[in-house]
Structures are given as C-alpha cells and as structure tokens.
C-alpha cells in the first residue's frame, strides 16, 4: 500500500533503536525544561537556609554553596542551554545554507568570496573570537546565541556547497533547465531537497557543539551571567578541588545533563539521516 513521505520517514526512524530512545529522553528533558516554572520546587535564585546540603528529600539534588536548590536551577539551566543550542543552530544553518547554495550554484566570484570568508571564520580561534565579542557586547544569553550562530555556519556552508556542486550536474537539474524552470525553482525545489538530509545531520552536531560551547563560555564567565542559571555556569561553581571531591552533587547533575543532551542529539541526527532518504529500504 502506498504511504506518505512523512509516514515512511517515521517508519524508517523507528528502526534506529538508539535514535528512538534518544528522542524519548530528549523529549522528556525538553518537556521538563518547558515546564520548569511548574516543576521547580523552589525559586532557582532564592537562597535557602541550608548551604551546600547533600541531596535529601527536601532538596532532591541538594543545594549549592549559597543555598540555592540545585534541582530548580538545573531545570532553568537546561532551559537556557536548549534555547541557546536550538536558536544558534537555527541561525548558523540559515546562514550556512544560504551562502553554500549561492557559492555552489553560481560559482565564480561569488564562490571565491564566500569560501574565503568561510576559511577566515574557520581558521580563527573561536574561543578568542567569542571572548572578544563577549567583551564588546555585554555577555548574556541572547548575545551568546547570536555569537554562536554567526560562528558555527562555515561547516554547513562548505557541506552545502559541496552537495550543490555535485547535484547541479545531475540530469534532473539539466532536465529542469531544459524545461525552462527558473533558477529559484532549481535551487529550492531541485537542489535543496536533495541536500536536506546531510544538512539536518550536520545541524544536530552543530546543536550539540553549541550546547557544549555555551557551557564552556558560561564556565569561563563570558556566557550566561549569574544569578541566572545555565548548565555551564552551574559547573562554574565547581571549579575548586574541594567542591570536586567533597561536594560532587554540585557538578554531577549539570554535567550529566550536558552529556545526555549531546549524546541524544547526536543519535537523533544519525537516525534522521537514515530516515529521510527515501531510497533506504530496510524492511
């Protein structure tokens, strides 16, 4: 029987067990982050009388050095990390796809200029770039999103350009040209749909990296500013050796959530790559 494209994508996605499990876990994390105001037992920034308390019934993940409830902060922090990861990936993908399409399809001077810009952004030590940008603009969540978005696009641009270069010489593109179809049609109906799968897979890895980068920046103090919580600046509090050895609940839970997020996103990317391609026929 004939099935819709979406139906076949879902069917193929289901064969990727790790992907399905990851999707479930990620959905739970996203849901928890969205429902943070409802789920959090305390105000994430409110100071409680118990300092550095180990996990207990009252504070299921314990409290930090100044007595804030870690579970509540974890929920809000995950919210920030997911938002940063998602939005900066969106920006990076948009820029990368657009520039990659132009460079690959039109070639010549456009290709030359775009690819040299790509090389420049890629060759610059990005931590330095982010630190400079963070110093010029005020550090904060929205700036982090923009900075990461404008730094992560070169990989996608290169990938898209390469795909466009090979796809534009395929016979179905020639057929569209012979049929008098416009450039816009060829770019967005012939070429782009055939490069969506690698873009999506790459975008998931960009998202994983963005989440890590946000954590790293916040850890360095250039990211999300306290008292607002993010997974990164929660780890920031765990820099000293005493915290690492004596108060492990301060860093285990945010660390675990970061690892979980990144692993899930990567598995989902893998599963998507197999699922999107209509010619993969695993019965």
């Amino acid at each position: 029987m004939h099935e819709s494209y979406l139906g076949s994508v879902i069917r193929r996605f289901k064969y990727h067990k790790a992907g399905v499990v990851s999707l479930v876990i990620l959905s739970l994390i996203v849901l928890a982050a969205l429902l943070a105001p409802v789920l959090a037992p305390y105000d994430p920034n409110a100071i409680n009388p118990e300092f550095s308390a180990a996990p207990s019934v009252k504070h299921i993940l314990g409290t930090d050095q100044i007595g804030r409830d870690l579970f509540s902060r974890l929920l809000y922090g995950t919210r920030v990390s997911l938002l940063v990861g998602f939005l900066s990936t969106l920006i990076a993908t948009f820029i990368g796809v657009l520039l990659g399409l132009i460079a690959g399809y039109f070639g010549g001077a456009a290709d030359m200029i775009i690819m040299r810009c790509t090389d420049m952004v890629m060759s610059f030590p990005y931590i330095l770039l982010i630190l400079v940008a963070g110093a010029i603009f005020e550090p904060g969540m929205w700036n982090i999103i923009l900075i990461l978005g404008f730094i992560d696009w070169p990989g996608i641009a290169r990938l898209v350009r390469g795909n466009v270069l090979s796809i534009k010489e395929k016979d179905f593109v020639h057929a569209s040209r012979i049929g008098g179809m416009s450039r816009t049609y060829i770019l967005f109906s012939d070429i782009l749909p055939n490069t969506i799968a690698p873009i999506l897979v790459f975008a998931t890895s960009v998202m994983a990296i963005s989440i890590l980068d946000e954590a790293a920046l916040s850890f360095l103090g250039m990211g999300v500013q306290p008292p607002a919580a993010s997974l990164g600046n929660m780890l920031n509090g765990a820099q000293s050796i005493t915290v690492l050895t004596k108060l492990p609940w301060l860093w285990i839970s945010p660390g675990a959530v970061i690892v979980l997020l990144v692993v899930c996103v990567n598995f989902i990317g893998d599963a998507l790559r197999d699922a999107i391609d209509p010619s993969t026929t695993k019965s």
Partner: peptide, 19 residues
C-alpha cells in the same frame, strides 16, 4: 525552448528523487 526537450540515458538520475 519548450519545443526542444530531452530524454536522458539514466532515468534514475534524470528524475528528482525527492519529488
């Protein structure tokens, strides 16, 4: 242009797989 059309050798390559 519309009066001159073409049929290619390999129909797998000449049809957009995503449409």
């Amino acid at each position: 242009r519309a009066q001159l059309q073409m049929i290619f050798q390999d129909p797998t390559a000449s049809l957009n797989p995503r449409r």
